Simulated scan of single mutants.
Amino acid sequence: MLEKALQRDAESRPFEREMKAFGEILLGDPALLDKLDATPDKKAFIDAYLAMAKERGIHFSREDLMIAVQEQKQGQDWILPRKVIRMIADRF
């Protein structure tokens, strides 16, 4: 049953896989995390996050990112790394 639920989510929310992949890249590159942390506000953070992902061939929309942020603020669907969530808490 869990396997079916995971498959359903992967098919209905393909952006999750992309965001998780980018999260792994971020965690492996402190310079990218520092660049994100230097963003002064919500808009700059979102723009930088999307641009960094796109530069690495990873694509998801602003809306997808906002869905993930909102869900994680509610304690659901941990898609974004905790370090990113801490940055988000300061800006959103």
Rank of each mutant, 00 (worst) to 15 (best):
H59K: 04
R62F: 02
I85V: 13
K42H: 12
M87V: 09
K35Q: 12
G57M: 03
R13P: 02
L26V: 11
Y49Q: 12
K20T: 15
P14S: 05
A51N: 12
A5N: 08
W78N: 04
I25S: 04
D77N: 15
K35T: 08
G28K: 05
G57E: 02
W78F: 11
S12T: 13
E11I: 11
W78M: 05
E55D: 14
R62H: 13
H59P: 01
I58Q: 00
S12L: 11
K42V: 01
K35H: 04
A10F: 11
S12D: 09
I85H: 03
P81W: 13
G28A: 12
L33M: 06
D9V: 10
L2T: 05
P81N: 10
A21P: 02
E16Y: 14
A44Y: 09
E3Y: 05
M52I: 06
E71Y: 09
F45M: 08
E18P: 00
A53P: 01
I79A: 06
D34H: 05
Q72Y: 11
D64S: 05
D37M: 03
D90F: 00
R8T: 11
S61V: 05
E55C: 08
Y49D: 01
D34T: 14
E3T: 03
F22M: 03
E18Y: 07
D34N: 09
K35M: 04
R8L: 15
A38E: 13
L2R: 11
Q72A: 07
G75R: 03
E3F: 03
I88L: 14
E16M: 07
K73D: 02
D37E: 13
F45R: 11
D64H: 15
M66A: 06
D47F: 12
K83H: 05
I67M: 07
L27K: 10
A51Q: 14
R82I: 14
A31E: 10
R13D: 02
K42R: 15
L27V: 05
G28I: 07
R91K: 15
L6G: 08
P81Y: 13
E24S: 10
T39V: 09
Q74D: 14
T39I: 05
K20F: 07
Q76Y: 13
